[in-house]
Computed example of a mutant assay.
Amino acid sequence: MIEESSLRNAESLIRFGTEKLSSISDVPRLEAEVLLSNLLKINPIKFHTEDIGISPNVMDKFESMIESRFKGIPIAYLIGKKEFWSLSFEINSSVLVPRPETELLIENAIELLKDQESPKILELGTGSGIVSIVLHKELLSPEITATDISSEALYVAKNNAHKYRITDINFLVSDWFSEFKNEKYDLIISNPPYVDKTKLSNEELFSIGMEPDIALYSENDGTSDLEFIIRNSSMFLEHGGWLMLEHGYDQADYCMREMRTAGYSKIKKSKDIQDIPRTISGTFLNE
């Protein structure tokens, strides 16, 4: 418990939170400010310009949030949202917390389809819906189907689409291609599970341990789902259609070999903001 008498303003409370989180976060003060500003519904900049009083009720809630964060619960789950592509998305424990690396996947898709009218897109494993929603906003009248094996994840995705008044994304429960037969798409895009849990350090396990296993981990050194998508996607692509995937930091060469074996051409690797290979794309020409 924290002593109420010593924490009568925001700065004191933030210092308490910063000290508590310093052993589990690289940016403990920032996280403390985000949590408290969310509770107070104010811009965090006010913590640096004003002396803000704190009620006992807010103090109790903040202490609980700090304790939850200390146990490994992501900030996005605690405040129920995450910014991505300069948009705010609803996030809960049914879905992964969006990472900035995934913006590269979207950038590549936009560059590929920016001049195409009404491209048909299939997103596999949509989670919170961020990829499909951003593509819907950025492209010319795309026809998007977004799938996930988790109905709870799709509920979040639908809420996010509704927030941005998007009503024409087809959200569908499907285990990869299980619900598809003869459909053809110009682009199949996915950020599938690709983490090998056995290779993670304790620190890495702590940082993602509260997120859904089904969206993170894959068998065979993290490649099982990537392999399945690569080997089965071509039958659902139009002639000259594209497959675009996000993958792990050490999986680019593996994905390239698999795509070549599956008959893809014009295969291209892209690096993220940390100069790490993060996405791969290729086109399939039906013979």
Results as ranks from 00 to 15, higher is better:
P212K: 12
Q116E: 14
E211H: 11
I66Q: 05
G209W: 08
A109G: 05
S151W: 11
M210N: 15
A215C: 03
A109E: 02
D221H: 13
V156E: 09
M59C: 15
P100V: 04
K268E: 00
L13M: 11
K181L: 07
L285A: 10
I54H: 05
L245G: 04
G17Y: 00
I276L: 10
N38D: 15
I273K: 15
S68D: 13
D253R: 12
S150T: 06
D175M: 14
I73R: 04
L172H: 06
A262K: 04
E138S: 14
L105A: 11
L96F: 10
K114F: 00
N92F: 00
N92Y: 00
G282T: 03
I45W: 00
L13A: 01
L96E: 06
L105R: 06
Q116G: 01
E204G: 08
L39T: 04
G17I: 08
K61T: 01
T145A: 12
N43E: 11
G53D: 13
E19G: 00
M235A: 12
E107A: 03
E11H: 05
F16T: 07
F180G: 02
I188H: 04
I45N: 03
K46N: 13
D51R: 09
E152N: 15
E3M: 02
H136P: 03
K158E: 15
I121R: 10
G241P: 02
L140K: 15
K82C: 08
F284T: 06
L36M: 08
S151K: 15
D51E: 05
K120A: 11
I188F: 06
E143G: 07
E11R: 11
E90T: 14
L40S: 01
S233R: 09
N57F: 12
V58N: 09
L39M: 03
D213A: 15
E63G: 12
F47V: 00
F206K: 11
F70S: 11
L135I: 06
A109F: 05
I133C: 08
K268S: 00
P44K: 04
Y77I: 03
E258F: 00
K269A: 09
L140P: 01
S150R: 01
P277W: 05
W176Y: 10
S118D: 07
